[in-house]
Design a protein around this nucleic acid. Structure first.
Length: 179
DNA sequence: GCCAACGTTGGC
DNA sequence: GCCAACGTTGGC
C-alpha cells in the first residue's frame, strides 16, 4: 500500500465538500501536470492512503485522511471545452489526463498546519515542505504518514487549545467502489 | 497582492 | 535542443 498527499484549494473543493459528496467519494479530476498524472496513472491503487491538504489558505494544513477507491481512469473534463481545465490536446480517444476516485476516511478535529509540519524534524524531507514544491500529487512515506496522523491527534499543535467539541464523525463505511 | 519557484511554450 | 517569455502555484 502506498501513501500520498493531495492538494486542493478549499475554495474550489474542500474536505467538507468531500464529506458532503455521495458516499463521501469523489473523482479527483483537473490534474494537469505530467508528473502528477503519471503518479495517478501508474502508482495509485485502491487502498492507498491519502493526506488531504488545503492549500492557498491561511493556515495551509493537512485537514484529514482519504483513501483511494478507484485506480486511474480518463479524466473527461480534459476534453470538455466548457471546463476550466479544458485541454485542446485531449480527446475521448486519447485522454491524456487521468483521475482517480477517493473516499473520505476522516476529517481531523484539528488541522495539521504547515507550521506544525515544519516543526517536526522527522518530516524534514517531506516533499510538501521542500522549497518551491508545487506538485499537487505527492508521494508520502509510511513514516511521514504516521507522523502526520499522530500530529493530528496530539494536543501539541500550535494555536488554540480549544476544548474538544463533538468528536469528528468517524467515517469508515465499507463498500469499496463507486457505482 | 506580492513574488519566488517552477512548468510550459514557442521561436530560433 | 536551447532558452527567454509567459502563466501558474502557493506561502506569506
Amino acid at each position: 500500500m502506498r501513501y500520498w498527499l493531495l492538494k486542493t484549494e478549499p475554495e474550489g473543493f474542500s474536505i467538507d465538500d468531500l464529506a458532503a459528496s455521495p458516499r463521501q467519494t469523489t473523482c479527483w479530476d483537473g490534474v494537469r501536470n505530467y508528473q502528477a498524472r503519471n503518479s495517478l496513472r501508474d502508482d495509485f491503487r485502491p487502498g492507498d492512503k491519502v493526506l488531504f491538504y488545503h492549500s492557498s489558505i491561511v493556515p495551509a494544513a493537512v485537514v484529514g485522511l482519504a483513501e483511494v477507491v478507484r485506480e486511474g481512469y480518463p479524466d473527461p473534463t480534459a476534453w470538455d471545452p466548457d471546463h476550466k481545465h479544458f485541454d485542446p490536446g485531449a480527446t475521448a480517444e486519447n485522454a491524456r489526463w487521468v483521475m482517480v476516485d477517493i473516499r473520505l476516511v476522516e476529517k481531523f478535529d484539528q488541522p495539521v498546519t504547515l507550521d506544525v509540519l515544519r516543526a517536526e524534524p522527522k518530516l524534514a524531507k517531506m516533499e510538501l515542505l521542500r522549497r518551491g514544491s508545487r506538485l499537487s500529487v505527492q508521494p508520502v512515506t509510511p513514516e511521514e504518514f504516521k507522523i502526520v496522523e499522530r500530529l493530528a491527534k496530539s494536543s501539541t499543535s500550535v494555536g488554540k487549545e480549544s476544548p474538544k467539541s463533538a468528536p469528528a464523525p468517524k467515517i469508515a463505511k465499507k463498500p469499496s467502489t463507486l457505482s
